[in-house]
Design a protein around this nucleic acid. Structure first.
Lengths: 248, 248
DNA sequence: CGACGGCTTGAACTTTCTCAACTCACGTGG
DNA sequence: CCACGTGAGTTGAGAAAGTTCAAGCCGTCG
């Protein structure tokens, strides 16, 4: 595992691109200073493993840039993705030493790591961190439950459409900049990774993407670059009801 | 929705059967006194709906006795269970007003409800509650991820075996009493509820249970009463590796 | 140039679903 | 007390969806 210190491209926490969404979102300036002391950056190349299931994990971390996947693998090799971590998402569980899942870098990845012991101590001292972590964990639980509906009850076509929606939406929420067109994006996952996300084989993924293309729901340039001419049309293909589960 | 006050069978929080596992587990005596003021019991009969998805939810609650299920339903009626709540499990999300899932009583059910507003205020004031809630939420997230592997990658037979293991284990952790034999238990779910848990049809559930019975993995008296002659044998049928995922 | 990884497509096969008939236990009302 | 309806569960046969195995394409990298 390569662990080179990264060129981070910003000076300190106050400049950090995930400052307002990560575990540290609620922290005051002085709390950030404490965090600065126990944090360090680490970067991984696409495909690298960050942690192996069963390994000791001496840190917790936030994804700063890039995408990571949590996966579980059965003895015979069947694997299921159980988490897709985007910038600001949190990895690791305070109070636990051993990683329960494989964590792999899906794209080039930079993480902001905190040594576990000091982080745990800080959590006791500063409720802002624990508060934010609870909020984030509840959000992840909701996402996991949405995902369970997808895995248990959706057809292959609905699964693909749903994944495209999820990626498009998350892409949109990251690029708040004006120039980004929500309807055009790159798939950050291989067909195999998509299959592992959706509980399908990669062949089925490929076939269903082709089918959506033939039916004009999406357009493809190359294998990864997707254009969605009509968002509502894609939404209809997901099987979800129209409001998209806005529940607040 | 019937909401009768229940015969609760114990005097106060300190006698409560879930005292040491629920959200209130970490609370001191004086904190419990505060909770007593905002709590009330509610009971439901098997089959009753506790909350409808989309409804206003003015309380959060702990399951005291019985079992409840969280389910999501698609427009065309396909439904997926996304949570199975046993005694001490928590329902509701502080900071959210609208229920994202249907909550139904699978068996007769008693819940210890807290009015949401005061509970939220108390969470701010007493870190013990938030701490415990974070811990419980992280546990639920782990369970959800285990469940995702089941939904995405296991065969029907493995799904059934896994569900039987889960029920047997949870049953065991509740009945710590000496006389209970782990290998004998009642299914608290109908075939249909099992199907919704596992992402199968009820016919497939029925067939696979019959198959496990024919193969001698389980024995049945009636439809619900299960005996597991050889636990290891059942474990082998789940597809999980032998240690059962003990990750601490 | 050749090899390789990522992807697509086809054909046969398997698993699970769908639809339908039937059993069984239970409770109700004639 | 029995006939009946009902809800839960079982079983079968055929259909559909997805998987498996196999072949081949395309772009990139050494």
């Amino acid at each position: 595992m390569t662990l080179q210190d990264a060129k981070i491209g910003f000076k300190d926490c106050s400049d950090c691109p995930i400052r307002h969404r990560a575990v540290c979102a609620r922290c005051e300036t002085n709390e950030l200073e404490l965090l600065e002391k126990i944090k360090y950056y680490r970067s991984y190349e696409a495909g690298q493993t960050v942690v192996w299931s069963g390994d000791q994990m001496d840190f917790v971390a936030s994804v700063v840039t890039g995408i990571a996947a949590l996966t579980q693998t059965m003895e015979d090799g069947r694997t299921q993705m159980v988490g897709l971590l985007l910038p600001s998402d949190f990895v690791g569980r305070p109070g636990r030493n051993v990683a329960p899942y494989d964590v792999t870098a899906t794209t080039n990845l930079m993480m902001c790591c905190f040594r576990k012991k000091p982080f745990e101590e800080m959590m006791q001292a500063t409720p802002h961190i624990a508060q934010r972590l609870l909020e984030m964990t509840l959000d992840e639980l909701d996402a996991a439950r949405e995902w369970m509906l997808l895995l248990g009850r959706k057809t292959a076509r609905e699964k693909i459409a749903s994944l495209l929606m999820i990626i498009a939406r998350r892409e949109a929420s990251l690029n708040v900049s004006a120039d980004s067109d929500v309807r055009v994006f790159d798939l950050p996952l291989t067909r195999e990774a998509m299959a592992n996300y959706l509980g399908l084989t990669l062949e089925t993924v490929s076939r269903q993407i082709s089918a959506l293309r033939k039916d004009g729901v999406i357009m493809l340039e190359g294998k990864r670059h997707v254009t969605v001419p009509d968002f509502q049309r894609l939404q209809d293909e997901t099987g979800d009801d129209s409001d998209g589960g806005m529940l607040f």
